[in-house]
Amino acid sequence: MLAKRIIPCLDIKNGRTVKGVNFVDLRDAGDPVELADIYAREGADELVFLDISATEERRKTLAELVYHVAEKVNIPFTVGGGISSVEDVDVLLHNGADKVSINSSAVKNPQLINDLVAKFGSQCIVVAIDAKQIDGEWKVHLVGGKVPTEIDLFKWAKEVEERGAGEILFTSMDHDGTKEGFANEALAKLSTLLNIPIIASGGAGNMQHFVDTFTSGKADAALAASVFHFKEMEIKHLKETLQNKGIAVRL
């Protein structure tokens, strides 16, 4: 049976992990490769690296990071953040990334999804969507959720699927950082409307939140950052809890 996936997300700036990461057994808390390796050993099913650097050197630094992660880590990983062209993706996949995630660049230029799918295949193209409720309607937001648009979440998600994306990473800006649970109603609607896997993101605070997003939210995978980075939750323990609730996980 296909297992539900647990995905830690690492924010990267200039090739280093940002946000304080509370790992006592880490020699270098800022080294994404070492952190990725630890998560892989602890039972993470996949990893996401989100690059938030804004320097001229960012492309080269990110490509080097991808190479070193692939060298060391034996589980799949996705790279996102500022990817806006076929050339960007080519370099990252060539260096060992399994998937890339695009966000604002897809909204600005939806044809990019088709171009990437034609060149690299659906299986490695993830479209990340940040959305927030405005007057009861889910609207897509850009630039890490800072810039609102008039675009409806569900319409955009459907278009993303039709253009060939292999997966959607949906972050609810209303839930992100709250630690009060995922946006399960919107997630379930996405899962019913679309026929590609949906990754839930934003709101993870405790283990029950993961149970809920896999059951009532119908999510295929769940992504979280701080609960893992600050050791509030051990991945192995989380997966055991999920298994006890009858949810298929890889243990």
């Binding site: 049976m1 296909l2 297992a3 539900k4 996936r5 099913d45 996949e46 589980i75 799949p76 659906s122 299986q123 292999g166 997966e167 026929n195 590609i196 896997p197 295929d220 995978a221 890889r250």
Partner: peptide
């Protein structure tokens, strides 16, 4: 959902390729 993405189990393992691999092991 298509594509299938993630970890699924393998069983009825034959040939030395799977030597030491347990039935229902997860693969990506």
């Amino acid at each position: 959902k298509v594509p299938q993405i993630g970890w699924n189990q393998i069983s009825q393992l034959k040939t030395p390729l799977f030597e030491g691999i347990r039935d229902k092991e997860y693969v990506y």
